[in-house]
Design a protein around this nucleic acid. Sequence first.
DNA 1: ACCTGAACACCGTTCAAGT
DNA 2: ACCTGAACACCGTTCAAGT
Lengths: 185, 185
Amino acid sequence: MPRNRRPQDREEKRQEIVRAAATLFTDVGYDETSTTKIATAAGVTTTTIYWYFADKDALLVAVLDHVLEAALAEAALHSQRPWADQVLWAVDRLERYRRLVTVVHARAPISESIGAWHDEFHRLVDSMMVDGFRDAGVPESDLDAMTKIGVFVVEGLLMHPQSEQDRRAVVTLLTGQTRRGSGSS
Amino acid sequence: MPRNRRPQDREEKRQEIVRAAATLFTDVGYDETSTTKIATAAGVTTTTIYWYFADKDALLVAVLDHVLEAALAEAALHSQRPWADQVLWAVDRLERYRRLVTVVHARAPISESIGAWHDEFHRLVDSMMVDGFRDAGVPESDLDAMTKIGVFVVEGLLMHPQSEQDRRAVVTLLTGQTRRGSGSS
DNA sequence: ACCTGAACACCGTTCAAGT
DNA sequence: ACCTGAACACCGTTCAAGT
């Protein structure tokens, strides 16, 4: 009984569009990637994209969810390592998504769906950061401000690539300076 | 002898285009502002813009220089105030240029002229930050990393507007925590 | 030297028409 | 339900033509 036939195929094709868009948005950029290029890469017609997604922004949200899901799954494997290493690993892992970060910042104020995704994302990152800094011994009174600084520093490191050495120095200072006597000659 | 007539007029018209573009790029956004809208606001034809500027990116660079010059002139008046206040003032003053920050980050990798402007800008900001943190008593060994954290935090505060109170908490923690016994009950 | 109107290639999106 | 070709309004930019 092929009554509800091939919901498989539909999901597969949708995934193929998301994967093609993810690659292009990440490596080339959102503004630099036309819907026609995405369609070609996914093996469909330009207009077909609009059968699966309301507009280009909706496709971007699907890409962001796709990328975030994979990154979170990987991050879970590192949750037992020292706090500084976890932050450093996150920066390493996310650096290639620099272009996605910029486009989210650029479109969040003008696209409701991207704005909502951005807010949700920061809620998630904030909650992870709070836990990390608390475990690292940051006093409760400084925890909120320290979390914000942590998020800003990670974002900054993504946007302004540094040498491995400089990156490590920044993260060490960030995660270590509130613990007494942690280096500095 | 009107041999070299009206270099005044030329500079005036150029300035008018830059001013119109500055307002629109700042309030509406770079991608959201067409060259036609800029031309209309400046009282010229679209193609006239291309007599004064090589392309839209060159106009953006002129806008960035224009805005930066004004901000630096104002900043000079505050150079004697406490370090935390100076940083807080800068965040306050620059918040309205959030859209310019995003577009510079978005276009720096793909436009050589924007990339060059971005590098130059960070050299300037870095040198100001280093002096501030050194005077505030940050040890020489942490100065480079601390400067980067400072720049990232200022950028983060620009991109993610906070309440006056939260902003102050972040900047206080940033500028104060390396000085011994500066609060936190 | 300075400015313009017409044109070019491209963009995201819509929609009537097909299966 | 799913997909398409043709068309729409708009974009940044070019260029021959005017003064």
